[in-house]
Structure formats: structure tokens, C-alpha cells
Amino acid sequence: MHCAERLLSRGDTVVGIDSLNAYYDPALKEARLARLSSHPNFSFERLDVADRAGMAALFARVRPTRVLHLAAQAGVRYSIDQPDDYSDSNLLGFGNVLQGCRAAQVQHLVYASSSSVYGGNAKLPYSERDAVDHPVSYYAATKKANEVMAHSYAHLYGMPTTGLRFFTVYGPWGRPDMALFKFTRAMLAGEPIDVYGNGQLVRDFTYIDDIVEGVLRVLDKPATPDPAYDPLAPNPGISTAPYRIFNIGNSTPTVLMDYIAALEAALGTTADKRMLPIQPGDMHSTAADVSALAAWVGFKPATPVGEGVARFARWYRDFYGS
């Protein structure tokens, strides 16, 4: 929604695709859609990216110049319980997007990968130059698969593709299954919050406005082959094909307890914390090296966590009532 708003505001024509499924509250999805629907340059297709025939027909009809693919079955923990949903949306669906882009001769495909691809890596901050062969969740495995699927199309068909590894995105209109949303709801209701990893998990929380700025700058600069690529010492973030991978993160790793403290300050209340062990599939720490992104598009995220959390808290109270 945020990316679509920015694209529309600068004069682009946007066709939005969403299945509006019930993974989380469809009313929130409908409310986001309502913000876009009044714009004359916006149209909406209720469609599942896993629908091969439907996606092929849409690409043939619309023939987009560029594609921003942010659709996926999200969530690390849910992938343990419902892996088939991830196979359908993140593998079959991504394949349908690649095929559509190839058929329509799209100028640039930009798609959401995830910091979760770094999995069992222990060296921080994470760099696109690092190998990502040890995912610790099926969700992460599907995102790694997207990157290598995209490379094959970039190599075979010369189709520019860029994957963006998002680091714990948060902010207004976000997903209710994310920690900030759950914490806010529980704290305002006077209920305890579940704090995993005994509050010592570390995340590179990245505010939505920074994500959108990075996404649009990348979308406007199609991937190109990198003459520095050395097949004898391969860098996974670049290629002889028009293919790029970038981290988008705040580069300010924050301990979960400090994130909660920022929310307590924003809401003016103290959370009743229920300390729990780390969950299966969770990573202990994330931190982004964004030097490659900064070199490519001249931008890196910088919104402080305290400021971003306060903006979310204000939006939550406005949208749901205090």
C-alpha cells in the first residue's frame, strides 16, 4: 500500500494484485485498499499469484513495464505449521510472476526477499557477499529459492531482477502478526505480552518509510550485469546476468527489550512481560550491511526506532481507538 501510494503520487499507473486471504484480518487489508481505490490511476485485481492461468491472463492484458512483487505467505512460525501455503504462494506464485514478466518483456522485476535467508549465519552484520545456504525456517528457504529462481531468468532471458532482503519492517498499517502490533494490542488491553528469547533477541528494525524509499529507488534503476563478478570467487549479490541482491535494514540492531521500552514510552504504560524461550525457526540476531544499497541508489535507512515506534503507536490509536 505504501509503495503504491508513492508511485501514484508521482504519476505512475498502478495495478494492484492481492488475494485478500484470511491469514490476518481482511478488514485491515480492505482498509488499505480503500486508501488507494479512489485514485484514478489505480486499479485492483483480486487474484492469487498461485493461479497460473489468472496471472498469465493478467500479464497479457496489462503488459506492465515494471513489476514490484511483494506478495508472499509471510511469517516464520506459521511456515512450520502450514508449509503448503508457502509452497503455493512463495514458490508456485513466484514462478508465475517470473513467467509473466518474461512474456510481457518487463523492464525490471523487483521482489521481496528477507533477512531470514541468512539463517544460521553468525557473522554480523549480514552482507550480500555471504553465503546463505543454511535457512532455519521453511519461509526462509522459499525466499532463498526466489533469489535463485530470479537469477535463472536473468541469466536465460536477460530479464533484470533485483531481490531486496528486508530486515524486520514495522510501521503504520503493518501486519497484525508482527511483534509490535501484538504488543500494542495487548498493552492497551491490559494483557501480558509474550517476550521470546527472554527479551534478548536482536533485530535490525526498519521503518516502513525507509523501506519504501529504498524500494522505489531500486525499482527506478534496473539491475545490470556486474563486470566485477568473478566466477572463481563468486559474490552471491551480483552476477554476469542483470541480477542484484540488496539488504534493506536500519543498520542499528536493537535488543527486543529496548524495542519494548520504546513502545512503553510511546503508549505511556508498562508492559506485563511473560518471558519465553526462543521459538523454533527464529534467528537470535539480525543486522544489515547496507553499503551495497547505498552505493547503488545513494540511500540507506536511518529512522530511529523510538521515532518509528511512536509513529506506529499514534496510527494504531487513530485506527483502532485507544
Rank of each mutant, 00 (worst) to 15 (best):
M283G: 08
S38T: 14
P83D: 03
F246R: 04
S87H: 15
P64R: 02
A294T: 12
G163F: 06
L33E: 12
G16E: 01
A150Y: 11
G197W: 06
L36M: 04
V290G: 11
G119P: 09
Q73R: 15
T161P: 08
L36A: 05
T65E: 15
A4R: 01
V67C: 02
D220R: 09
S115M: 13
R52N: 10
D85L: 15
F319S: 11
V148R: 14
A223Y: 05
Y157P: 11
T168P: 01
R274T: 12
A154H: 11
A186L: 00
M55V: 14
D84G: 12
H2C: 06
A141Y: 03
A288M: 09
Y111Q: 09
A71I: 00
K182D: 13
A112N: 07
E45R: 15
S37A: 13
L293H: 08
L7T: 05
V212P: 05
M275P: 06
G54N: 12
W296C: 14
I248A: 04
E5L: 15
A186P: 01
D282R: 02
V202A: 02
E128T: 15
G268K: 05
R52P: 04
Y320W: 13
M283Y: 00
K144T: 13
P253G: 09
E213S: 09
Y139R: 07
E147F: 04
A53S: 14
H108K: 06
P277G: 06
L109F: 05
L7Y: 05
L276G: 02
R102A: 12
L58M: 10
S43K: 10
L180N: 04
Y316S: 05
Y243F: 15
V215M: 10
K182S: 13
E147A: 12
T270E: 14
P301C: 08
Y139T: 07
T184D: 02
F299N: 06
Y118K: 11
F205E: 02
L109S: 07
K273Y: 01
V136W: 03
E213I: 04
V106F: 13
G54E: 11
Y86I: 01
S285Y: 02
G54S: 10
P301L: 04
D51K: 06
S137K: 01
V215H: 03
P225W: 02
F246N: 00
Q279F: 08
Y111H: 11
T162D: 05
D88A: 15
G237V: 04
F246D: 01
S127N: 09
F166Q: 08
A103K: 12
P222D: 07
W173E: 11
I17T: 06
V110D: 07
P304H: 06
R10I: 12
A261G: 03
A60V: 10
V15D: 03
P253W: 08
S19D: 13
G237N: 07
Q200A: 13
N96H: 12
A150M: 08
V255P: 10
S152P: 03
A288W: 05
P135K: 03
R185G: 10
N247F: 07
V255G: 04
K144H: 07
V297P: 03
L201D: 09
A295D: 14
L180K: 03
D85M: 12
V49L: 15
A288G: 06
A104C: 09
P253D: 04
S87P: 02
T184I: 04
E213F: 04
P222V: 05
K143I: 09
G237T: 10
P234F: 11
S87D: 14
